[in-house]
Amino acid sequence: MISLNNLTRVYRASDVETTALKSINLTVKEGEFIAIMGPSGCGKSTLLSILGMLDSPSSGCYQFNGDDISDYSEAKLAQLRKTSIGFVFQSFNLIDELTVYENVELPLQYLKISKKQRKDRVEAILRRMAIDHRADHLPQQLSGGQQQRVAVARALVINPKLILADEPTGNLDSKNGEAVMNMLRALNQAGTTVIMVTHAEKEGNYADRLVRLLDGQIMVDKASQTIDTTEVA
């Protein structure tokens, strides 16, 4: 599904050059659940942004579904992004001025889906996330766990092939965090590819595969122990 080949991202700020990612080679197959781990500043977020097409590599090749997208125009990237990728963020990033319903509806609007269909799909996903009773509330009126469920609902409403999660449990207590992790696990098992950035080892264990970054380079790329144990079991 995804193939990164010798990918590098360099930031230039006046005279200082920072290499955030250096010669990354990574292949993601459809249906995988990958956790990207590493200390802060190692390039996790940059990698996720590039995977999510919010940022472009300085050099190297990014293939998505077999197409090289490194020289796609912004409009084309936006098109690909809105049809294929769902984002879940640490700080939820719900739009404060929109209600729960409107937040979840937003990606469908960008997909130009009819109002009737939007209503059906938003209501369905809100029920699935057990947050439908809060549809008319504004984000600030919800607890952190509820907000993250809305954020996940928003990511899922377009039926994405790929979910990118940036420390999805970072701002949650352990109970709510566990619930979100289970949700992602369940999604993955239903066939969605999940790539997640985290620095909690415990969460890494939910994934099939573990990629460890350090100073912009991949140090470890291996199937996680969870997989091992399940295979053993």
Binding site: R81, I95, D96, P107, Y110
Partner: peptide
């Protein structure tokens, strides 16, 4: 934040 989210959800700059 709104701009960032809208971009992530597929809004183009023109939009």
């Amino acid at each position: 934040k709104e701009v960032g989210v809208r971009k992530a959800l597929g809004a183009t700059r023109t939009q």
